[in-house]
Computed example of a mutant assay.
Amino acid sequence: MLAPDAPQPIRAGEEFDLGRLNEYLREHAPEIGTVLEVQQFPGGFSNLTYWLKTTNQEYVLRRPPVGANIKGGHDMGREFNVLSLLKGHYAKIPEPVMYCETSDVLGAPFYVMKRVPGIILRASMAPKINFAPERMRRLSKALIDNLVTIHKVNIEGSGLAQLGKPEGYVQRQVEGWIKRYRAAETDKLVAMDYIGDWLQHNYPTEQAPAFLHNDYKYDNVLLAPDKTSGEPTPVITGVLDWEMATVGDPLMDLGATLAYWSEASDSPAYRNFNLTWLPGNLTRREVVSRYAVQSGRNLSQILFYYVFGLYKNAVIAQQIYARWKQGYSRDPRFGHLLPMIIEVANKAVDSINRDEF
Rank of each mutant, 00 (worst) to 15 (best):
W51F: 15
L48A: 07
I352M: 09
C100R: 04
L310K: 10
E286N: 05
Y111S: 04
V66Q: 14
N22E: 06
A161I: 15
A108H: 08
G33M: 10
K152H: 14
P339Y: 02
R297A: 12
R333H: 02
R138L: 14
A123K: 09
E356N: 06
Y218K: 01
D219T: 03
L85R: 10
V221I: 15
L299F: 05
M125L: 15
P30K: 06
H28N: 12
A12L: 10
V315L: 01
E79F: 01
W277R: 07
G280N: 04
V60H: 08
N272Q: 13
T54K: 09
L251Y: 03
P268N: 07
R20F: 02
R138Y: 12
F45N: 12
E343D: 08
K325C: 11
N146T: 14
E58F: 13
S265D: 10
F131S: 13
I120L: 06
I341W: 01
E156Q: 15
V239H: 04
G88F: 00
Q326P: 03
F110H: 08
P96C: 00
D350S: 10
Y306Q: 03
A91E: 08
A161H: 12
L2R: 11
S229R: 11
I342T: 08
V315Q: 01
Q318K: 01
W261S: 11
G309D: 10
R323G: 00
E185H: 06
R63T: 07
G157L: 07
L83M: 06
K128E: 14
A91I: 00
N47E: 14
V35D: 01
Q319M: 14
K312W: 02
W242K: 07
H201Y: 06
A269F: 11
K188V: 13
G335F: 02
D197C: 03
V97P: 00
E27N: 09
R284Y: 01
L278F: 04
S124N: 13
L48I: 13
S103E: 12
A126M: 12
G118W: 12
G176Y: 05
T186Y: 05
T276Q: 06
L275S: 09
C100N: 08
S103T: 11
V221R: 11
W324I: 05
G44R: 05
